[in-house]
Each structure stands twice: as C-alpha cells, then as structure tokens.
Amino acid sequence: MANVNGCELPDDLYYNVEDNVWARRETDGTLVVGMTSYACSLSGQIVAFTPKKAGKVVERGRSLSTVESGKWVGPVKAPVGGEIVAVNEVLFDDPGIINADPYGEGWLIRLKPGDWEGESGNLVSGGDIVPAFEAKMNEDGFGGC
C-alpha cells in the first residue's frame, strides 16, 4: 500500500492520476473502477451517486457516473473505454461507503474494456504511483488526506 500525504493508494491498482480514479483488473478481464482516497478527500462526504446504466458503452475520459458531495457535483471518468457491465447498487442507499472504503465496498462500476491493451498505457501502476500522485498533489496545492 502506497501512501502519499496521508492518502492511501494501493499499489496493485491502475490509476488515471488526472481524473483521480483507480481500476482493478479482474481475472475475467473486466475492470472494477472507483474513486481514489485523494478524490474522496477533496470532495468530502459523498451524498449521492448516479451511474450510467449497465449496457452503456463509454469512451475513455467520458463520465461513468456523477457523484455529489455537499453541493458539488462531479463526474467519475472512465480510465479506459468500455461497456458498463455492473454498477454498485449498494451505493444508492448508502453513498457514504465510497468515502469509508474507496478501494473495497465503495467501488462504483464494473467495465468490460473495449481495448485494454491499447488504452491502458496512460494509466500508472506499481512504482510510478507515488511520484505521479506527489506531482499531482503538489500542483493542486493539496495539504493531505
């Protein structure tokens, strides 16, 4: 588990640093997507979650879902393009799980990637995670989780 400025960032995940999302590749080739602890810290307590519906095909960088915290609304963007095969329906009744367990029970969407090999190159993983998030947090002027 990597940790940058108090924000946990599991080192077995892929990240789009700019969009602050993580992705975990499952053995069946699908991708579980969620918000990073850094994104959760910036947004504060999440009070609503509205995903696109299962079956929808979303391009890389387009919105998979919107989340609401306080009165801010923002998108959660697809780390790679693909078809939404499942959404975490538990979050409809208790979206605060996203803050409480962003890498576990608080996952948002399961995607079937359209072109994982072609599009995953823009994601960071392993030893690149810490320097990438350090740079992002410095640029943002972020104080820490």
């Binding site: 910036l42 947004s43 504060g44 915290s69 306080g70 801010w72 943002d140 002027g141 972020f142 104080g143």
Partner: peptide, 13 residues
Amino acid sequence: RNALGTPDMGEIA
C-alpha cells in the same frame, strides 16, 4: 479549478 488558489472544494465554495 486553480483560479482561486486552492483545490479544496469547500474552500472554493
């Protein structure tokens, strides 16, 4: 998002 010099959404609001 950096126009007001802070990334904190509550602070921007």
